[in-house]
Nucleic acid binder design. Structure first.
Lengths: 149, 149
DNA sequence: ATAAACCTTAGAGTTAAATCCAAGGTCAAG
DNA sequence: CTTGACCTTGGATTTAACTCTAAGGTTTAT
């Protein structure tokens, strides 16, 4: 069992954030000490890890609450409901992955084109790199200037 | 050239949002009409598409501004600077992809386990599914209840 | 030539998500 | 038995990212 401050330190968040998540139904400590201190279990900690990860990839707290509710309301949902909800979220996640892979390939191209790639300095902005995703690269001279002083 | 309202409709955002992006240095129209109306080019539109995509995968507007600045300040940066910055962003993107792939596989497992998969109803929450990512699935009976009325 | 549908700016208001503050209770160490 | 580091609640404040309002100028269609 972790007290709020311990859990906060462990996950590098503020205690206020944990109380905020509790108030908004995302993460309640599974116990309280006699004097009323919040006591978080390992499962609570896992749940927090999930929340933090989901946030990092662009889900809002209400999206996350929805995902977590699959657990909370377990017995109140029919299979088909659970499956439908999960499948919708899965599509969202896969769409995000596709977007990110496009970014990643554009950024790689940009990185390779900048200084010394085999086809150096063709693309000097993400936008150019994105736009050129299907075009053929052509060797060209370097055109970066030095940083101003 | 698109007027602000046209571009807004095209990308399903508010005109206010476009003015907000301009004020914050993310997207300025490349022209103005004689009477002062904003006129956005196709390149401006591409830039907007990029902003919207980047937002959808969890980048903040200041993250995005940083990515776009690679273009804007093109001539003011040395190659190594550009490359370094791009590579940092690339790492962030790849980390996000890894997170999302973990989510996706957990969600798939959950979806498969719910109603009628070969090993039905083993996992009934994302958390269980996440925790079980390395454990072996065991066939088990369905245990979902019907929705209450 | 006038109404409807656009556009302008400046500034105020909203929402989500956190963060801070005040007044006080708890607990381990010296 | 008190000092310091923790915890409690309730409510105010902040930040990012919009979103709206007001007062007026422009364009297009009838």
């Amino acid at each position: 069992m972790y007290r709020i401050g311990e859990l906060a330190t462990l996950f590098d968040v503020k205690t206020d954030t944990l109380r905020f998540y509790e108030k908004h139904g995302l993460l309640a400590p599974s116990n309280r000490s006699e004097s009323g201190y919040r006591l978080y279990s390992n499962d609570d900690a896992e749940k927090l890890r999930f929340i933090i990860r989901a946030k990092a990839v662009g889900f809002s707290l209400s999206d996350i609450a929805e995902l977590l509710s699959i657990e909370l309301d377990k017995s109140n949902w029919a299979c088909a409901d659970v499956k439908g909800m999960v499948d919708i979220k899965l599509e969202q996640v896969q769409a995000k992955i596709a977007e990110l892979e496009f970014f990643a390939s554009s950024l790689s191209k940009l990185s390779d084109a900048c200084c010394g790639g085999p086809e150096s300095a063709e693309h000097c902005s993400i936008l150019e790199a994105l736009e050129s995703s299907d075009k053929e690269l052509q060797p060209k001279v370097e055109h970066h200037a030095a940083k101003p002083n």
